[in-house]
Amino acid sequence: MQKVQNKKRKIILVAAVSLAVMVFLALTVSVSEVVVTGNEKYTEEEIAKILFPDRMSKNSLLCFLKNRLQEHVQIPFVEDYEIIFHGPGQVEVIIYEKSVVGYVSYMNSYMYFDKDGIIVESANEALLGVPLVTGLKFGQIILYQKLPLEKEEIFPEILALTQILTMNEMQVDRIEFGAYDEITLYLGDLEVLLGNGGNLNDKISELNSMLPQLEGHGGILHLEDYDDANIRAGYTLEPKSKGTD
């Protein structure tokens, strides 16, 4: 009987020690390596700093439980993210970014919209690589609702233009729509007049091919009448008048 009790005590002791070791390791092992994928608007270091800002947040066990049981941290321009553990101290963060094609200025904020015209984000700073769209008339803007354009028929033109720019891997600072819906692109000191939106593919393609030669030069580039099928309908580059934006 005594031997049985001693054996039970040993089993309990071993189990208690094992549990204590496991708890100790769980509470002391920290995330030391973070790999981030799917991120374009943030660097790997920025994402790591947002998700693991202090020593406690880097604890592997707490990080695992928090990721499973709590709502994810809200990150501007990020739809959601996943945290995958590849080891006690190794995690991979998969970022699913919101798709934005442009933004408008509204009440001291920048309102970003997606390809469907839905306002997906509000921010106080301009996002690099996303064009500001000016010259539009719209009503009250509400987050997660469609941009209330006075001329809704102009949005397909905005989408087509941003898609063509993306396909040509071109970044512009601003897209302006004039009183008669004529389009002007702003790239640094270069102002590009595209006219009323016709033949956009050829115009943007030609502009893209000219950019290396235009680097460092300012002025107004006239592409309103450019037609790839008609070599006579070309383009001209003129200097800006003093005081012209």
Score class of each variant (00 low, 15 high):
I12N: 05
I12T: 07
I12V: 14
I12M: 11
I12H: 06
L13W: 12
V14W: 13
A15P: 01
A15T: 15
A15Y: 08
A16Q: 06
A16S: 13
A16P: 02
A16R: 03
V17K: 02
V17Y: 09
V17G: 03
S18Y: 03
S18E: 04
S18L: 13
S18M: 12
S18R: 03
L19V: 11
L19P: 00
L19W: 09
L19K: 01
A20C: 12
V21W: 09
V21F: 12
V21H: 05
V21Q: 02
M22C: 12
M22K: 00
M22A: 15
M22H: 04
M22Q: 04
M22I: 13
V23Q: 02
V23D: 01
V23Y: 06
F24W: 15
F24Y: 15
A26M: 09
A26G: 14
A26Q: 04
A26H: 02
L27V: 04
L27G: 13
L27E: 06
T28K: 10
T28S: 12
T28P: 00
T28V: 07
T28N: 11
T28F: 09
T28E: 06
V29W: 06
V29T: 12
V29E: 02
S30A: 10
S30N: 14
S30Q: 13
S30K: 15
S30P: 00
S30Y: 10
V31L: 08
V31H: 04
V31F: 06
S32H: 12
S32N: 14
S32K: 15
S32M: 11
S32Y: 09
S32Q: 13
S32R: 15
S32G: 14
S32D: 12
E33A: 09
E33Q: 10
E33V: 11
V34S: 06
V34P: 07
V34L: 07
V34K: 05
V35F: 11
V35K: 15
V35S: 09
V35A: 05
V35M: 07
V35T: 13
V36Q: 03
V36C: 01
V36A: 01
V36W: 04
T37D: 05
T37K: 12
T37W: 00
T37I: 11
T37N: 10
T37V: 11
G38D: 03
G38I: 05
G38Q: 04
G38R: 07
N39H: 07
N39F: 00
N39S: 11
N39A: 11
E40P: 00
E40F: 01
E40D: 08
E40Y: 01
K41D: 00
K41A: 01
